[in-house]
């Protein structure tokens, strides 16, 4: 009856392995049809495309693990991005990128706390609360703060989008580099992983998703944990918002909102349980990679863009379905 450690690993990360396998298989197929796929320029550009969705996904992952759901993070991201840009232009146009990110993150934390107040203190379901706050934040942004696209961003934001490293020469002689944004994303992924794995608060997030009553009985302060979760979601959303406008080189208040379901899909694709308690940061990151790969690369092999959505849906059903099937079989049902 004893399960060996390696067996256990394989079982516990079964979903992640499946997603990794799909990513590898897709890459081989796409690359064999269009060798452009393997060009360093394309790979760098794919990695850059994961940044915004990735930052959002990390927050969304936290909420899902805790057994709830948040759909307001894109609205928070847009709000932080637009308000921060305006504020900085108005007050300190020369502010550095770190300051800008911190300001956006701070606004995000405050907005996240609004969610936490309703979800934690009034014990309302996250879906309902964030449906409300998301809509409210967006409406507030467009009504009171502005609808005009900011075309001249602070210089440091433009500069940020140009920072690249690991420079390589492409076949056509162009020098390309990997965007700093990707480093930011991966750094936060590692940070979230460490928090979840090695802090008591991080374990409380899993505990909460496993059994709320037991979490309270053991003596966790659920309110504190939830403020941590939604605050972090807000911070990451603020970061994602600023990074997005920096990449786009403008501040468009209509951007981002509408992508929240794709983000949640990516996290679920990565094996995070929608009912809470299960999932890994690694899986969530893989889910984002896979979704970005589908969204950006199927076009390279001539699959029309409308098809991409169908493909995403099919992969979600197949990957989560196969895991569910295996679980059922192992229980002998």
């Amino acid at each position: 009856m004893k399960i060996s450690a390696s067996d256990n690993m394989l079982k516990r990360f079964r979903h992640e392995f499946i997603i990794l396998a799909i990513i590898v298989a897709l890459s081989i197929i796409i690359g064999s049809i269009n060798s452009q796929f393997y060009s360093i320029g394309n790979i760098y550009s794919l990695l850059k495309s994961t940044v915004i969705m990735g930052l959002f996904a990390l927050g969304s992952f936290l909420v899902l693990v805790s057994g709830d759901i948040d759909i307001s993070f894109t609205a928070i991201g847009a709000f932080c991005m637009y308000v921060t840009s305006k504020l900085v232009l108005l007050i300190i146009p020369g502010a550095g990128i770190v300051v800008i990110m911190l300001v956006a993150g701070l606004i995000g934390i405050l907005l996240g706390f609004i969610n936490a107040v309703f979800i934690s203190l009034l014990k309302m379901p996250g879906l309902i609360v964030t449906l409300g706050t998301g809509s409210m934040i967006r409406g507030f942004l467009l009504t009171f703060i502005g609808v005009r696209i900011i075309n001249k961003l602070p210089d440091s934001m433009i500069a940020f989008s140009k920072i690249t490293f690991l420079h390589k020469a492409q076949a056509n002689g162009h020098i390309v580099g990997l965007s700093i944004g990707f480093v930011v994303f991966i750094a936060f992924a590692i940070l979230i992983y460490l928090i979840l794995k090695y802090t008591v608060t991080g374990r409380a997030v899993y505990a909460l998703g496993g059994d709320r009553v037991a979490t309270a009985r053991v003596g966790f302060n659920i309110t504190k944990v939830q403020f941590f979760i939604y605050g972090t979601v807000g911070f990451l959303s603020g970061l994602a918002g600023v990074t997005h406008s920096s990449f786009m080189r403008n501040g468009n208040p209509f951007d981002l909102v509408g992508t929240e379901l794709s983000v949640i899909a990516a996290v679920v694709l990565g094996g995070t349980s929608i009912t809470g308690g299960k999932g890994s940061v690694f899986g969530a990151v893989l889910g984002v990679f896979l979704l970005v790969l589908i969204n950006n690369s199927l076009i390279m092999v001539g699959i029309p863009s409308y098809w991409q959505r169908a493909v995403v849906g099919i992969i979600i059903l197949l990957s989560t379905g196969s895991v569910a099937l295996q679980e059922r079989r192992s229980q002998g049902v």
Binding site: V213, V218, G276
Partner: peptide, 20 residues
Amino acid sequence: DLSLFPNLTVAENLALNSYL
């Protein structure tokens, strides 16, 4: 209902209390 965490390992279920 035992108040255990079904999604965590035996080790963690046992140890979380003393950490808290």
